[in-house]
Design a binder for these strands. Structure first.
Length: 519
RNA sequence: GGCCCUAUCGUCUAACGGUUAGGACGCCAGAUUUUCAAUCUGAUAAUCAGGGUUCGAUUCCCUGUAGGGUCACCA
């Protein structure tokens, strides 16, 4: 370590046991923002000591998600290639950046072993031979008499020699931390202020199953120390771990980092958002067409605000205005309506070119178009080449209507499909009869036929001058628009007519007339 | 149950102890539209309860109530 040690260092330490979710992203974000705000460092550490539940796929997914969202980090694992496709199922080679690696806990066993041995040698930890059943029974008893269910230290005074002898005999054991005598453990939480715990309520907790398999609270302490972490921002489900970690830092003779516990994001039921809640999975948001900048903006404002009325923020602006002090003390319910609104806003801010590039995968996914030669596309139905400007035009027509990119497919399918399907009653505008509808459609047919230069200006001139003559413009415009799109709601008829082209317009109007006459 | 934390519109939230308690999303109404959006206008809507402290409490203190977290040989 160089003189960098004066700079702050934060970390995001997820365990790869499921898809990244909104809650963990917010924890990552706050750590990231703080480090960037203060010109410090940000570390990504993979906490995979639980071999049963940790999977490399989840780790890859996590790295992809974080990259997609616009995070970068100074230390930790990064993907070497393949970041262009965020949520495919491919695995990538991973390398570490930074000098405090490895950054997977599963690869740090030797480091933990060293510290574990130190704890044992210095009398801060001891071997415990109690069985699970015995411990459970004791816990049950303590709870029944209204006391804290903690391990009281039955094996505390077994001598080192005795313990080694029992291990030699093959007795099963774990390693417990020897909690200090009764005293107050106090720490100043950056968000919650002063928090006090009584050391007695902690008991002698297990820190390792054996020298090779340390547990969370221990690895966390060792790593935060070894990696020089100065600030730990994490969910408030960790406050109860904090006193345990503090006494271990004390036993190690080092200063604990500064803690900031952020309130949890709650689901509709006001319960902690869990990884099992499918709607919280980041991959899900990607597949529905949420923009990373919208997700970041939304998540930042879940439990934080700048104290002004500005609420549309880029990552860069967040870094500028972020402060831990402004983080809320109470939990926030995840409100997807606001996310939709923000997403729509960011969609509207995109250039047509950018937005089209983002929408194309969704059109492909919906089986409306498919890739052809470099940068060109065919319609799936008729295999005809569809020029990029037409895709762009389609996207442009629906830009201000979209809340999620996924919606582009159902909005614009009539552009790419050969046949459109709808109920003939949709063609009737308000109180129109079938006869009147046919007359209206035939009028449209005649008008469209008469247009030589089939562009928006001409179509509008012809169609609207005729529509104005009607008692209601809708008498002409509604059946015309429905005939072209097959939809109750859509963009305006003249722009759509231009997009579809004269031939297709004529076909569809004729089809609509037939639909009423013969269906 | 023990321990810890929290409490302002439906939701996210603002308010040096002094404001007609502000904003945003959603909802509702109006304008604009053939439709749906977008846009603009407007409306409805909150300090958990009870005690203190104070000239004055959303704000400070206590009690109650409600909610959340945590009590693993998970993280």
């Amino acid at each position: 370590m160089t003189n960098n040690s004066v700079k702050i260092k934060t970390r995001f330490a997820p365990s790869p046991t499921g898809p990244a979710h909104i809650g963990s992203i917010r924890t990552a974000l706050f750590n990231y923002l703080l480090s960037r705000k203060l010109g410090g460092f940000f570390v990504l550490r993979i906490e995979d000591t639980d071999k049963e539940r940790s999977k490399i796929e989840w780790e890859h997914m996590l790295l992809k998600s974080m990259t997609w969202l616009g995070f970068d980090w100074d230390e930790g694992p990064i993907m070497i290639e393949g970041q262009e496709s965020m949520f495919d199922n491919n695995s990538y080679d991973i390398k570490y950046i930074g000098e405090n690696g490895p950054y997977r806990q599963s690869e740090r066993t030797e480091i933990y072993k060293k510290y574990l041995q130190k704890m044992l040698d210095e009398g801060h930890a001891y071997y415990c031979f109690c069985t699970k059943e015995e411990v459970e029974a004791q816990k049950g008893y303590l709870m029944s008499i209204g006391e804290s269910p903690v391990y009281k230290g039955t094996c505390r005074n077994i001598t080192k020699e005795d313990a080694e002898e029992r291990i030699k005999q093959g007795k099963k054991c774990v390693i417990r931390f020897k909690s200090p005598e009764k005293h107050k453990i106090v720490f100043e939480d950056l968000i919650k202020g002063k928090i006090e715990f009584d050391s007695e309520t902690l008991g002698d907790f297990v820190i390792a199953k054996n020298l090779e398999t340390p547990l969370y609270n221990f690895t966390c302490v060792v790593d935060d120390y070894e990696m020089g972490i100065t600030h730990v921002i994490r969910g408030e489900d960790h406050v109860s771990n904090t006193p345990k970690q503090i006494i271990m830092f004390n036993a190690l003779g080092v200063k604990p980092p500064i803690f900031a516990h952020i309130p949890l994001i709650l689901g509709q039921g006001k319960k902690k958002l869990s990884k099992r809640d499918a709607e919280t999975s980041l991959e899900e948001y990607y597949h529905e067409g949420y923009l990373p900048e919208a997700i970041i903006n939304f998540v930042a404002f879940l439990g934080w605000n700048p104290g002004t009325e500005k609420e549309i923020y880029s990552m860069k602006e967040l870094i500028e205005d972020f402060s831990v002090e402004k983080i809320q003390k109470s939990g926030a319910i995840f409100n997807s309506e606001k996310l939709d609104w923000i997403n729509g806003l960011y969609i509207r801010k995109k250039s047509i070119d950018q937005l089209t590039k983002l929408c194309i995968p969704f059109l492909i996914e919906a089986n409306l178009i498919k890739r052809h030669a470099a940068g060109t596309y065919l319609t799936v139905d008729t295999e005809e080449l569809i020029p990029t400007y037409k895709i762009e035009k389609s996207v442009a027509l629906y830009q201000e209507r979209m809340k999620k990119l996924l919606e582009i497919a159902e909005f614009t399918d009539f552009v790419f499909k050969k046949d459109i399907d709808y109920d003939k009653s949709l063609l009737k505008w308000k109180a129109m009869t079938e006869e009147e509808t046919i007359v209206s459609l035939e009028k449209s047919l005649e008008l469209i036929r008469s247009i030589i230069n089939f562009d928006k200006e001409n179509i509008e001139k012809v169609i609207f001058s005729e529509a104005e003559k009607m008692p209601n413009r809708g008498d002409l415009l509604w059946p015309f628009r429905v005939a072209l799109t097959g939809k109750q709601s859509s963009a305006g008829p003249t722009e759509i007519a231009e997009l579809l082209g004269k031939e297709k317009c004529l076909d569809r109007i004729e089809l609509a007339i037939k639909k009423i006459k013969y269906a």
